[in-house]
C-alpha cells in the first residue's frame, strides 16, 4: 500500500527568452504508508520540487503522481495532507492561534481552542498573544509544524522541519514524527541533516540533478562495515587490548576490525573479561553520510 506513487516525473521550468531548466528528470518513487521517508540530496537536487508536485503546487511537465490513492489536484486528497514549506510566510498581524484557526478553516476543520492550544504545546510553543512576526526562525518552524499536524493528516510532507530549531527542539520534532508514524501517518522528510534523517527514516531516496540516484531502506543503502571505533571506561590495559586486535587511536579510542557481528561480539567479550568496559561503539566509514559523499562527492556522478 503506497502513500505516494510517482512515475517518470519530469519538470521543466520555462525561463524568459526561451531558456528552460530541468528540476525533475524522471523521478520514479513509491513511498509506503506508515513509514518515514527521507529525501536527501544537494541543493538544487529537486527535493523541494518533488514535494511540491505531491501537492499540485508544481504541475509536472511529464509523468504522473498519485498521492493517497488519488490526484493531488483534488482538494479532498490535499485535505489528508499536512505540509510544512521550506520557507514560511505569516501575515504580520497573525498570532499563533489566529494562524492555526485560519488554516483550520481552510482545511474545513473546526477545532476547539483547547485542541489548538494542546497542538501548540505539543510543538513546544507557549500560547500567548505575541505576533508571529516577532517569532524566531525556530519558533516559526514549530508553528509551521503545528499547522501541518492540524487535522491528523495521513501524509506529512515536511521540507526542512528542523531548520533553525535548537538541538533540544530537534529531539522533540523527531519524537513527534515517530509518534505520527506510530499513529499510522506517512512522513516524507526533506532535510539537509543526514544524521537526523538516518536516525528516524525507514527508507531514503538520494536525489541529484532531478533524478533518484539511490532509493531503499537504510539497511539496503548503508553497506555492512568491518571497521569499528571503540572506547572503554577508565584506563584499560592497552597491551592486552592490542593482543585482542584493538589498534590505539588518538584521544583514548581504539580501532577494531571485525568481519561480522559474531566476531565483533566475541572480541568485545574477551576485552570485558580483561577488565575493559565498553562505553562507545561506532561503525566507521560506511554510514548514510559516507554513502551520500560517495555518491555525490567530487568525481562521482551528480
Amino acid at each position: 500500500m503506497w502513500a505516494v506513487e510517482a512515475i517518470g516525473l519530469e519538470k521543466d521550468y520555462r525561463r524568459p527568452f526561451g531558456k528552460s531548466s530541468r528540476a525533475l528528470a524522471g523521478v520514479t518513487l513509491s513511498i509506503p504508508r506508515g513509514s518515514i521517508f527521507g529525501l536527501l540530496g544537494l541543493n538544487g537536487a529537486g527535493k523541494t520540487t518533488f514535494i511540491k508536485t505531491l501537492l499540485a503546487v508544481v504541475r509536472p511537465s511529464r509523468g504522473s503522481v498519485r498521492v493517497l490513492g488519488g490526484s493531488p489536484e483534488l482538494p479532498e486528497v490535499r485535505a489528508k495532507i499536512g505540509y510544512l514549506p521550506e520557507r514560511s510566510y505569516y501575515p504580520p498581524t497573525a498570532t499563533a492561534l489566529t494562524h492555526l484557526r485560519s488554516i483550520a478553516r481552510l482545511k474545513g476543520l473546526a477545532p476547539s481552542p483547547g485542541e489548538l492550544e494542546r497542538l501548540l504545546e505539543r510543538v513546544g510553543l507557549v500560547v500567548n498573544s505575541a505576533k508571529v512576526a516577532s517569532y524566531s526562525k525556530g519558533m516559526t518552524q514549530r508553528l509551521g509544524l503545528a499547522a501541518a499536524l492540524l487535522g491528523r493528516p495521513e501524509l506529512l510532507l515536511l521540507d526542512e522541519p528542523t531548520d533553525g530549531i535548537d538541538p533540544l527542539g530537534r529531539l522533540e520534532v523527531r519524537r513527534i514524527l515517530v509518534e505520527e508514524r506510530a499513529r499510522g501517518a506517512t512522513v516524507v522528510l526533506n532535510s539537509h541533516l543526514v544524521a537526523e534523517t538516518e536516525r528516524i527514516a525507514d527508507r531514503v531516496a538520494i536525489l541529484s540533478g532531478g533524478r533518484v540516484l539511490r532509493e531503499g531502506s537504510l539497511h539496503e543503502l548503508v553497506r555492512p562495515t568491518s571497521s569499528w571505533r571503540v572506547r572503554f571506561a577508565g584506563a584499560a590495559d592497552s597491551q592486552a587490548l592490542a593482543e585482542l586486535g584493538f589498534t590505539p587511536l588518538s584521544g583514548g579510542a581504539y580501532s577494531l576490525q571485525a568481519p561480522d557481528p559474531e566476531a565483533l561480539n566475541r572480541t568485545l567479550e574477551q576485552a570485558r573479561a580483561r577488565g575493559a568496559w565498553l562505553i562507545e561503539l561506532t561503525a566507521e566509514g560506511h554510514g548514510l553520510e559516507e554513502e551520500l559523499v560517495r555518491l555525490l562527492g567530487p568525481g562521482e556522478p551528480s
Binding site: K52, L55, A56, V57, P75, E76, R78, A79, I81, Y83, P85, E86, R87, S88, Y89, Y90, P91, I103, L106, K107, G108, G144, A147, L157
Partner: peptide, 18 residues
C-alpha cells in the same frame, strides 16, 4: 502580491482549497 508571497502561496495551495 502578499497572497502570492513565497512560503504563503505554497502553503495555501497545499490546503484543500481550489
Amino acid at each position: 502580491p502578499s497572497l502570492l508571497a513565497p512560503g504563503r502561496i505554497e502553503h495555501l495551495l497545499s490546503l484543500p482549497v481550489r
